[in-house]
Structure formats: C-alpha cells, structure tokens
C-alpha cells in the first residue's frame, strides 16, 4: 500500500533504518528552518536524486508520489498569494470585488507563497527518502530502538498488520454490495455505507477477539517480541546525508550573500 510497496524494492532496504530516520529528519528540518526558495528547490532535487540513484526507485514513481500533496499545496499557497489588500498598497494585480473589497497579489505575499511552496516540496521529498526506502515494519522496530514506549510500538505493529486485513474485508463487502445494485442514490449510499462501516467494525472486533485467543493459546504474556532483521551499517547513507545537508547550508549562505 502506498509508499510501502516500493520500499520493499528499495536498494537501501537492508540498510539500518535508524540511519535513514536521522538523515531524513535532519535534511527535512534544515529545509524547514532555512525558509528559503533556493534551499527548498535544492532539497527537492537532491533528495529526489538520492531516491532514484541510491534507493533505486524509478523516476516515475518518485514523480508520482511528489504529485500527491500538490493539490493541497497549490490551494494553500494560492490563498497566501491571493488575498485582500488595503486600498493604498501597491499591488502587482488587483481587482475590486463588489466595489468594496480589494483583492490582489503583492510582491511580498507572492514571494511568501512561492517560499512556502518550495519549502514544502523540499520537506516532502526528504520525508519520501524515509518512506520510499524503509518498509513500515522495519521503521516500527527502529522506533523501539529510539526508545519509543514499548506499548506504542506494539500497537503500531498490530495496527499495521490489521490494516491490510480490514482493507481486504472492506473491499470484499464493497464489491458484494455493488454487485447487488448498492449505492444507487444518496439515501441508499448512506444506508449501504453504514452497513459497510458497521460490518467492518464488527468483523474487526471479532477478529481481534480471535487473534487474542490464538495468542493466548501460544503463551502470550502481554508482549509480542520479534527479532529485528540483520541490517548493514548506515555509513554510506550518513555520508550522503551529510553531503545533502552541506549542500543545503551552502545554498542558504550563497542566497544570503547574493540576495540581501
């Protein structure tokens, strides 16, 4: 599902997930803290290239995932750029709505909107470096090594597993309903959707019960312990991460220099 399907194919799959977590977070935070268009674009480029070159993802895959948050960002940044402005303020473009409100674009806010857009795209590509190269199960085990409470880690493991079970259940019920002329009108849609949701809930609850019984009959004492897979050291990832971070810092300094 989602990025996970590709993470299993990644060439960095066997690399220590903790290294990938730190590198992604460091690059992401640097991008967020520098608040500049150039750094955002550099981060976007570097992390996407790393995803393709180091992780072995196809370019198309990376591009497709970059499109996911685009809808939100375009709207979010349009509302920053296009806004009510005072009558006396100079604007690049402005229009009077109903002769009373003045809406338009000013240079400051255009810059702000662009900055937010580039910064967010950079941050997202840094997050994808983690998501597209680390299967969720490895990531959850890594969280335990990072001292996330055991209860939370176990809940995450169980939830992750159950998501697929329930998705499958929901998908089957949906097909069954649709093949019996379900979801015809708004009223019917509501009824059928209600059936679907409550049935999935019921099945989840009962399945949970069965899973517990199965666990208990195998000596469950309140915690699930699993061995983590053997990982190769994260040295190379750390090195590339350091290079990416250095590039970000250099870009930031250059921008500060050139654009006062």
């Amino acid at each position: 599902m989602g990025t996970d399907r590709y993470a299993y194919l990644s060439r960095l799959r066997r690399v220590d997930p903790v290294a990938k977590v730190w590198v992604s977070l460091a690059v992401l935070l640097l991008c967020l803290f520098s608040e500049s268009i150039a750094v955002g674009l550099v981060t976007l480029a570097v992390m996407s290239v790393l995803n393709v070159a180091l992780g072995g993802q196809r370019t198309g895959t990376v591009l497709r995932f970059m499109k996911v948050p685009l809808a939100f960002l375009v709207i979010g940044c349009l509302t920053i750029v296009l806004r009510p402005i005072p009558a006396e303020e100079p604007a690049l473009w402005a229009v009077w709505l109903f002769g009373r409100f003045r809406w338009g674009i000013t240079l400051t806010w255009l810059h702000m909107g662009l900055m937010v857009f580039c910064k967010a795209m950079g941050a997202i590509s840094a997050m994808y470096f983690l998501a597209l190269n680390t299967p969720m199960t490895d990531l959850i085990l890594a969280l335990e090594r990072l001292h996330v409470p055991k209860l939370l880690v176990e809940l995450m493991e169980l939830i992750y597993r159950f998501i697929f079970v329930l998705m499958d259940t929901a998908g089957r019920i949906r097909v069954a309903q649709e093949s019996r002329l379900g979801y015809g009108s708004f009223r019917k849609s509501l009824d059928h959707m209600g059936d679907l949701v409550s049935l999935v809930f019921l099945r989840a609850w009962r399945k949970g019960d069965k899973v517990y019984t199965a666990l208990e009959s195998r000596g469950y004492d309140g915690s699930l312990t699993t061995l983590s897979a053997a990982y190769t050291g994260g040295g190379r990832v750390y090195a590339w991460g350091a290079a990416a971070a250095a590039l970000q810092v250099v870009t930031l300094l250059l921008e500060r220099r050139l654009l006062p």
Partner: peptide
C-alpha cells in the same frame, strides 16, 4: 491491546 489495535486499524480503513 489487541482490540485497541483492531480499533486503530478500523480508523485507518
């Protein structure tokens, strides 16, 4: 714990 996990997965679905 198991039931809570089921509930979490239900929320995601």
């Amino acid at each position: 714990k198991v039931l809570l996990a089921m509930c979490g997965a239900f929320a995601f679905v």
